[in-house]
Design a protein around this nucleic acid. Structure first.
Length: 270
DNA sequence: AAGGATTCCTGTTGGC
DNA sequence: TGCCAACAGGAATCCT
């Protein structure tokens, strides 16, 4: 389940292998992802040089001379840098071949991911134009507080909404709310400025820390199974219904918010 | 318009 | 043990 830190780790992991390299060919074995992958991708990309690999929200951006290849890993996607002949696995849907004998191989069993070519300015693209800021780039400590006034949605839904802030997936929403002592179902618009400052800080800190931990496994990226090991991080509540709260030992409960599994400590979070 | 529900998909898990 | 339904989840899109 690639969360933002995993996407960032992937960007860092593939960057040095393919940046400033030229595409020789693209092979699409299965074009049915979230949206159909353009079968002309090979024609479009052949002989183009990859200028840079960047990230916006959970999208990976391969920036070429005439446009951008947008890649999303969905919830089961991964990219691997292949350096020597490697047997194709089931769901290895797409390969990009570079002129340094590197293959970038996209694998996605559930096919919630995406690979889209665009020649638009990326921030003008429909998928990007309404995105909120990156957590690390929010400077105003009251940014989320100000946005939330009059909002009746549950705070958990509010912080997971890309229009407000990007990159806060289910795991980090749960963890940040726990660290902030806020009940996930509380109406966003009813949370005080002071508590929102705490929450915003925790969202930023928890993602930053996870990215740093993901970075520690970069060394093994090429030979890994494509899953950067940021999972090593410790989780307080996510997936821990029935276990004891690490702070007060109250039994952690779960409930559903917006069709998402939600975990919280009924004593610590109000 | 805001916010909840639906939808895509397959590997894993739990129940019988 | 084996089969199968339920479940998980990012986020666009549909619906109320």
């Amino acid at each position: 389940m690639p969360e933002l830190p995993e996407v960032e780790t992937t960007a860092r992991g593939i960057r040095s292998h393919i940046e400033s390299r030229k595409i020789l060919d693209v092979k699409i074995r299965n074009n049915r992802l979230r949206w159909p992958v353009d079968n002309n991708l090979s024609k479009i990309l052949a002989s183009q040089t990859l200028k840079s690999v960047t990230r916006r929200a959970k999208y990976l951006l391969l920036n070429f001379e005439t446009g951008t290849l947008i890649i999303h890993l969905g919830m089961s996607g991964s990219l691997r840098v292949i350096t020597e002949p490697t047997e194709l696995k089931k769901h290895d849907h797409i390969s990009l071949f570079f002129d340094n004998e590197i293959e970038l191989r996209y694998h996605d069993p559930r096919r919630f991911g995406a690979m889209l070519w665009t020649e638009e300015l990326i921030e003008q693209h429909p998928l990007f134009i309404k995105l909120g800021p990156e957590p690390s780039e929010i400077l105003d400590p009251d940014y989320l507080y100000k946005l939330s006034r009059d909002k009746k949605a549950a705070i958990k839904s509010f912080i997971m909404d890309n229009h407000h802030i990007v990159g806060v997936g289910n795991i980090y929403a749960n963890e940040a709310l726990f660290l902030s002592g806020i009940h996930p179902k509380r109406a966003a618009g009813k949370i005080s400025k002071a508590r929102f400052r705490v929450l915003q800080t925790h969202i930023q800190a928890v993602l930053k820390k996870a990215i740093e931990q993901g970075g520690t496994t970069l060394r093994d990226f090429v030979n890994s199974d494509g899953q950067p090991g940021y999972f090593a991080q410790q989780l307080n509540v996510y997936g821990k219904a029935g276990e004891s709260c690490p702070v007060c030992e109250t039994t952690i409960k779960s409930l559903t918010i917006a069709q998402r599994n939600t975990f919280y400590c009924p004593n610590c979070q109000r």
